[in-house]
């Protein structure tokens, strides 16, 4: 898709995030909004088909930061995996749109996540499985939060990715600088993340603007040396696109009320 088309999709995804969380009266708008361009761009590249959601040769995506489910669902809906009518049921009893992604409930979701720190390992297993079976076309993507990287298991996964030479794996960090209790740097600083990922054996691409679709495309499409997993550290803005949510830690896990919904949707008209 063209950059303009992708930008339009991003706007739609943002409106969907606002509507889903407002409808439910709960959910995670902040970390959903920061991830929009990243997820939209990844899905634009993935070889997937809603008519064949279990096709063995499809690319895989693991939303390690599972709380960004509203963004994920909106992107999946855009690709025909979810009917938009389901949005009304987000976080409701018996809904396929669980608060955090449930692989049992939606074909197209490759792993159940929500407990932070685990998705990267699952993606490593998928990439290893693709290598094991000689499925050389299969690419595996996973999206992590920067706060999530405080989990020790992430580093176990990174070590394994390099050890098993998983050049079919792309680890993307939605580096919005905020978590729940405050700024990452206050809560538990990650230090020089790019240097750490390099030291762990990744080919690192750092994006100053993690909402720049062309920059994201370039990083996603960039070749890596054989045997090296890729890491894209995208500097993003938590709550991006909704003025009163941007860079506000308080919008991590709080839904907009009706007034706020209206204002947000107005800002996201397009």
């Amino acid at each position: 898709m063209s950059t303009a088309q992708l930008a339009a999709t991003c706007k739609q995804v943002r409106r969907d995030i606002i509507n889903m969380t407002a409808n439910a009266g709960s959910g995670h708008p902040g970390g959903s909004l920061s991830a929009v361009e990243l997820m939209v761009s990844v899905f634009d590249r993935m070889r997937i088909d809603a008519k064949k959601p279990h096709d063995e040769n499809r690319d895989r995506f693991v939303l390690s930061k599972g709380h960004s489910a509203p963004c994920y669902y909106a992107v999946l809906a855009h690709h025909g995996f979810i009917d938009r009518a389901e949005y009304a049921n987000f976080r409701q009893l018996h809904s396929i749109l669980q608060g955090h992604p449930d692989a049992k409930k939606i074909p197209g979701i490759d792993a159940s996540t929500g407990s932070l720190g685990q998705g990267c390992s699952i993606a490593v297993g998928m990439a290893l499985g693709a290598k094991h079976r000689g499925m050389s076309d299969v690419k595996v993507y996973t999206l992590l939060g920067d706060g999530e990287m405080q989990e020790g298991q992430i580093w176990e996964a990174c070590m394994a990715a390099a050890h098993y030479k998983l050049d079919n794996l792309t680890v993307i960090v939605d580096n919005n600088g905020l978590q729940i209790d405050g700024r990452n740097d206050e809560v538990m600083s990650l230090g020089d993340l790019a240097a750490k990922m390099r030291a762990f054996g990744f080919e690192v691409f750092e994006l100053a603007d993690g909402h720049d679709l062309d920059a994201i495309a370039a990083a996603l499409d960039a070749a890596v040396p054989a045997g090296k997993p890729k890491c894209i550290i995208a500097h993003t803005v938590k709550g991006k696109g909704v003025s009163f949510m941007e860079n506000q830690v308080g919008w991590h896990g709080k839904a907009p009320n009706e007034e706020q919904r209206a204002q947000a949707l107005k800002e996201l008209e397009g």
């Binding site: 993606a123 499985g129 094991h132």
Partner: peptide
């Protein structure tokens, strides 16, 4: 979790 991922690849 690597085992979880491997299982999704038909192993």
């Amino acid at each position: 979790n690597m085992a979880a991922g491997l299982s999704t690849m038909g192993l």
